[in-house]
Design a protein around this nucleic acid. Structure first.
Length: 812
RNA sequence: GGGCGUAUAGCUCAGUUGGUAGAGCUCCUGCCUUACAAGCAGGCGGUCACAGGUUCGAGUCCUGUUGCGCCCACCA
């Protein structure tokens, strides 16, 4: 009896073995073609959850497959450990705000804390069997990444794609930084639609409707629709707000006639429409919101210094008192908020660095067509987003822990002073420029205090991987990279920004293929929120309970791009498959103790069932390869399961047992036994290799135990993905139509026994197969195995018009 | 409001180019058959969301409707 497979011991053992023997190391000098994967660097912002395991495993299976296809796989692993998410993690952990401590101290704290998390993350990735080359590990806050990121900044500036401008920007008042369009999402809020009375120059009232009465001091015009007959005669007239400010009534198509009163105040700035009007009609700007989110410059003195929300309540009271508030209607409306804080976004003019993306939209769309998207429909999300872009990419953030904007300014002239590339990386707060402008001393220089958007760095992962700008052998091999795996929620950020940077630096696409994975949902249609995440199993618990191979199995059940729910049952099925593999292989090898692995049998000389099982695995391997080449890991895996579990275990093993146990029962039995042994040895070898990308631990265990001595390859993961298992065969129709009938016969025998309460192992007297002469000829080669699996004393063939079966039990 | 995806057994899903509806789980009945009870054998269970159309033939192709999910727009 064979021992049990203990995943808990085997998995860490092999993980250690792979690391120690550098099984997944990229061979820089290899002749083999490179296959490079632009692995997503996970954000170091807390815990890894099942969603990470899900999408990384899917990509990882492809890495293993490509390696077995003969590629020299470049599979690095990085960590995105700077930026706001990390800052917030650190602030929470030390229970202090970044703004409350010296910049240098905060940055050092961040570095220490992220280092701890990086190690934790790394351990978890290794425990799921990620086959990354850890010698290629990078972190986006390292000196090296900062250097590349600042180099990108300098180059884009020199090329004129990067500009600093004082312009209205999307602004979050809680973390006090500008943000990018991609970081904005919608959120529903309870609010009021207020009707406020303005006074037209002729003394008549004009009612305008607004949800943001606190912006009244910033009103710079009133707009009506040019088609709105109620107001056409007023266009061009002056109107006075309840606060005494006089503005002009103007017309624009963007005003909805039905909404509110049809007259709207334009404030600097309430929303993007205001921005558009100010720009289009060159209106005056009155800024009343500070970067802290407080009101300034209001003629109502009590408002000044209040937060926007408080000021809104106050001004409503004031307007009521003044008799200017006609009506307030409670509504629910959606407001743009910053994704990280959930707070409504303000539009505030600040000096920011922008990458000019709006002018390159066409190019961005063109490049999308040069990339293969898997699944194809994900390209639409990208295209739609690009087409609707309204803002240039603002890359400066008024934060602390990140890659510094590598720039200083002259206090005298305001001119921008940039470092030389050789000085990078720099932090302009601590470093001083080497070359000062004429007539300047160090005292005349002030640093840019901003850091770069994290995406500004993570969008150059191909450049970071390729040692861009260095005399490095990787530089030529990696650009463009072969594959970008990522989830669909970051198409508009990571995918887009990477495509932008690649275009601006290289006039090229960053990678040839992108495979987009889905999300793990809490329930159907419910995202995993923070509160829900606490109710779910952690990856560690999943691995502990079911094994890494089983969890990987679950992750590969999904179709590419599709969201799934966490199904414990599916992980259990993975565990079952692992056990089944162990049992089947162990069993087979119990019957191979007297088989010399050097013994080969020509395909023509094999028994029919043995030919069939080899033809079937050949077919399965081809299908798996086709699917994996399209990144359809799920279909490939179910091909395997069908073959292994159904054909190999349920039928083939049962068919050959008797032939192996009791060869003396059959004519020329020893040869027939050898035929089965050979077929077992060959097909199990392929079985192990075909499923190795999915279940790397159990397959390594089995390979090492049974095949390594023969093949002399250090790890199953360095063997070839088996696609040429047997020589090409012709005229295999008879084998396949024969086995179809044989399976039908076996099923009928089993049913006969079950129906008649005969145990399957019990003998019966006779199996009678009636059919046409030609069909009988096709079935006859399987006679021994039919007899064996049926446990029948005899198999009788009778000519007949139609296929029919008869059975005789033993009469006692 | 626009786009994309999706609707198949009680549950989770597969169904490649149109050709007799599949798997796993659940449930029921047998079986510790000399690999495996985390197993084996057998069974119950489906108007393939709805309505039209093309076709000898539609789960599959076309049109429309509805439900669900996602992305985007709207945000005065």
């Amino acid at each position: 009896m064979n021992t049990k497979y203990e995943a808990k011991e085997a998995e860490p053992k092999w993980q250690k073995f792979w690391l120690e023997n550098e099984i997944y190391k990229y061979q820089i000098d290899s002749e083999k073609p490179t296959y490079s994967i632009d692995t997503p660097p996970p954000t170091v912002s807390g815990k890894i959850h099942v969603g990470h395991i899900f999408s990384y495993t899917q990509a990882e299976v492809i890495a293993r497959f490509k390696r077995m296809q003969g590629f020299n796989v470049f599979y690095p692993f990085g960590f995105d450990d700077n930026g706001l998410p990390t800052e917030r993690l650190v602030e929470k952990e030390i229970n202090r705000k970044a703004s409350e401590m010296p910049r240098k101290e905060f940055i050092e704290t961040c570095l220490n804390i992220t280092e701890k998390y990086r190690q934790e993350f790394k351990g978890l990735w290794q425990s799921i069997g990620i086959s990354a080359d850890w010698s290629l590990e990078y972190s986006t806050i390292s000196d090296y990444s900062r250097k590349i990121s600042q180099k990108s900044f300098l180059e884009l500036y020199k090329k004129g794609f990067l500009v600093k401008k004082n312009a209205p920007a999307l602004w979050d008042i809680e973390v006090k930084t500008s943000v990018a369009q991609a970081e904005i999402e919608d959120k529903e809020f309870d609010s009021f639609f207020h009707d406020i009375k303005f006074t037209i120059e002729n003394g008549d009232d004009l009612i305008i409707a607004t949800t943001r009465p606190e912006l009244l001091p910033a009103c710079t015009a009133v707009f009506v629709n040019p088609e709105d007959s109620r107001y056409t005669h007023l266009i061009g007239k002056k109107v006075t707000t309840p606060l005494g400010k006089t503005v002009t009534i103007m017309s624009d198509e963007k005003v909805s006639i039905e909404k509110g009163s049809g007259a709207v105040m334009c404030c600097t700035y309430g929303d993007e429409t205001d921005l558009y009007w100010v720009k289009t009609y060159k209106l005056e700007e009155t800024i009343i919101i500070t970067p802290d989110g407080k009101i300034k410059n209001s003629p109502i003195e009590e408002m000044n210094g209040l937060y926007v929300n408080k000021a809104r309540v106050l001004i409503v009271e004031k307007l009521k008192e003044m008799g200017a508030l006609i009506n307030s209607k409670a509504i629910v409306h959606s407001v743009k908020v910053y994704e990280r804080t959930g707070r409504p976004i303000e539009i505030i003019p600040v000096s920011q660095w922008f990458i000019k993306t709006l002018e390159m939209k066409d190019k961005l769309l063109e490049n999308a067509d040069k990339i293969n998207w898997y699944p194809e429909y994900m390209k639409k999300r990208y295209v739609e987003w690009v087409e609707n872009l309204k803002w240039d990419w603002c890359i400066s953030r008024q934060r602390f822990f990140g890659v510094s904007v590598p720039a200083w300014y002259s206090k005298k002239t305001g001119e921008i002073i940039l470092p030389d590339e050789s000085e990078l990386p720099i932090d302009p707060v601590f470093d001083k420029p080497k070359n000062l402008p004429e007539g300047h001393t160090i005292e005349d220089i002030e640093p840019d205090l901003d850091v770069l958007d994290t995406w500004a760095t993570s969008s150059i992962t191909p450049q970071i991987n390729a040692h861009w700008g260095e005399e490095h052998p990787l530089a030529k091999k990696l650009i463009p990279m072969d594959l970008r795996p990522q989830a669909h929620d970051i198409i508009r950020t990571w995918a887009l920004y990477t495509i932008i940077k690649s275009e601006l630096h290289f006039n090229d696409i960053p990678w040839k293929n992108t495979m987009i994975s889905g999300h793990v949902l809490f329930k159907k249609g419910e995202k995993i929120s923070k509160s829900k995440a606490q109710k779910m199993m952690t990856p560690e618990e999943m691995i502990d309970k079911f094994s890494a191979d089983a969890v990987r199995f679950w992750a590969c059940r999904a179709s590419l791009g599709k969201d799934i729910q966490l199904e414990e049952n599916e992980i259990k099925n993975g565990l079952k498959l692992v056990t089944k593999l162990w049992n089947a292989v162990s069993f087979a090898f119990m019957n191979l103790t007297d088989y010399d692995v050097k013994t080969k049998v020509n395909f023509e000389d094999l028994e029919s069932s043995d030919k069939w099982i080899l033809l079937r695995i050949q077919e399965t391997a081809k299908k798996m390869e086709e699917n994996l080449n399209k990144f359809e890991f799920g279909s490939a895996m179910s091909e395997f399961e069908k073959y292994f579990w159904h054909d190999f275990c349920d039928f083939y093993l049962e068919m050959v047992k008797d032939r192996i146990y009791k060869p003396e029962k059959y004519e020329n039995g020893q040869n027939k036994k050898l035929s089965a042994q050979y077929a077992l040895y060959v097909s199990l070898n392929s079985i192990i290799k075909l499923i190795a990308p999915y279940l790397p631990h159990i397959t390594e265990e089995l390979y090492q135990k049974y095949y390594k001595d023969d093949e002399k390859i250090i790890s199953v993961h360095l063997t070839k993905f088996p696609v040429d298992i047997i020589p090409a065969q012709e005229n295999t129709e008879n084998i396949f139509s024969g086995i179809t009938k044989v399976i039908e016969i076996i099923e009928a025998v089993r049913k006969f026994k079950t129906d008649n309460k005969i145990r399957l192992g019990e003998e019966i007297e006779k199996v009678i197969i009636k059919s046409s002469a030609s069909e009988l000829e096709i079935i006859k080669p399987f006679q021994d195995d039919i007899q064996g699996v049926s446990r029948t004393r005899s198999v009788v063939f009778e000519p007949a018009e139609n296929f029919e079966l008869d059975f005789e039990a033993i009469v006692v």
